[in-house]
Design a protein around this nucleic acid. Structure first.
Lengths: 229, 229
DNA sequence: CGTGCGCTTGACTTTTTTCAATAAAGGTGG
DNA sequence: CCACCTTTATTGAAAAAAGTCAAGCGCACG
């Protein structure tokens, strides 16, 4: 597919004039990653960043003994790996394809040149990084100030809201990965889902799906006004 | 003092041409906050950001029951509160002066105009936000993958390194605030400092000072290769 | 048709928090 | 300069939350 056309659908480049899209299209490199493949590792030098055109990527940290904390899961249209482009340092985390994924790779130097001549791209990128800081802020708040049931409740509300307030939530990821997003382990998540089911707050099958039965209870859990028995 | 001169010392504006410094100086507004005063609250609209010229600011989140997680402590030359400038949304956290503090306040619209005409400022700001993302990444890693002794050890190493590798570390903040940075409570921190002292890894008096006695042990704790008895 | 991975559950351990009490330090006003 | 009061730090005992280890189930995939 035509790269310029793909680029024109990326939020980061919305409103960019066609001539610059052409420039970008010339410098962008198509890449493909098989499910399970590592895109970059913590400590790798960051010579550019990726934009996802299809598939899904998880960005995560690991502990010496193998536990994993997912920082975000990125899908179509989202850029990732930009931090070392602007700090000039190395990747602070790992990235791995959790589905077969196509990306456009933007080499650092070319992209920096574009930014120098095209302020709207700089502003878009500032917005992207700021949104990400905001999300990290929430994640830190969750990890530090809430217990796992509260984090789970907040996450379910977030997914529900993103899908127009539906009660039928498609997790889209495995429960093991959900545990890693919530900063816990599968056993703990499993137990808490069981408790919430027992209290008729949710229904949960094993098919990456959760149904909210008592939204008020979920909201109270997320707000810390309620606890599970 | 002359605002343009103050601005010329701010890393964010290094290398900016004098004419732009003059422009900035005209739009910047001097502000003063007394120790304990709130600079902004979570949810406030972000009509601009601050740059610290003297003093110290803590940026933090709170839980319903009053526990507090410090996101960062900012001092001279550092900007804070930029996120809503670029997201167009509200402040995602609180900011409070923990010492008498002077800032330069940069109104959003004027600053955005500067960025549109001066790419070097945009690049500086991208660098600032990227560094912050990197630090948040570490904080998330700490909170999720390490226990409190490991976090404390990593923090001590960070402070030591920042001060040219000295063994005599000046915390500069109260132990209550250190606990809040580490994502725990004063009691837990106190106990862990006591255990580390008992094992002759550190010496800790109550005067915002810690001395590293066994650096290897600290490094092993930070790397998760060792645990306290 | 088995092998493996994801998920669940139970029993147990570890870590951290909570609650309470005390001690020490620092600032304020007389 | 001292008494007083608030804040900060420490310690113990008990409770709660989450993690570890181990076992078992079921479904998907080769």
């Amino acid at each position: 597919m035509d790269i310029a056309k793909q680029l024109s659908h990326i939020p980061l480049f919305q409103g960019l004039e066609p001539q610059y899209l052409e420039t970008l299209a010339r410098i962008a490199v198509k890449k493909f990653f098989k499910r399970g493949e590592t895109v970059f590792a913590e400590g790798d030098p960051g010579i550019g960043f990726h934009i996802i055109t299809s598939g899904r990527i998880k960005v995560y940290k690991t502990s010496p003994d193998g536990k994993e904390q997912i920082l975000h899961i990125m899908s179509q249209g989202e850029p990732f790996g930009e931090v070392p482009v602007f700090t000039g340092q190395r990747f602070p985390a790992y990235a791995e394809a959790i589905a077969d994924t196509n990306t456009l790779f933007m080499p650092r130097d070319d992209f920096m040149n574009l930014i120098r001549t095209e302020p709207s791209v700089a502003l878009s990128m500032l917005s992207v990084l700021s949104m990400r800081l905001k999300r990290f802020t929430s994640l830190i708040e969750d990890l530090s100030l809430r217990e796992v049931p509260g984090r789970l409740a907040a996450y379910l509300l977030y997914l529900s809201e993103r899908d127009q307030g539906t009660d039928d939530i498609n997790l889209e990821i495995s429960k093991t990965q959900l545990a890693s997003i919530l900063g816990t382990i599968p056993e703990t998540l499993s137990r808490i889902l069981a408790r919430m089911t027992r209290e008729a707050i949710i229904e949960s099958d094993d098919k990456r799906h959760v149904r909210i039965c008592d939204r008020t209870a979920i909201e109270e859990l997320a707000a810390g006004e309620r606890r599970l028995a």
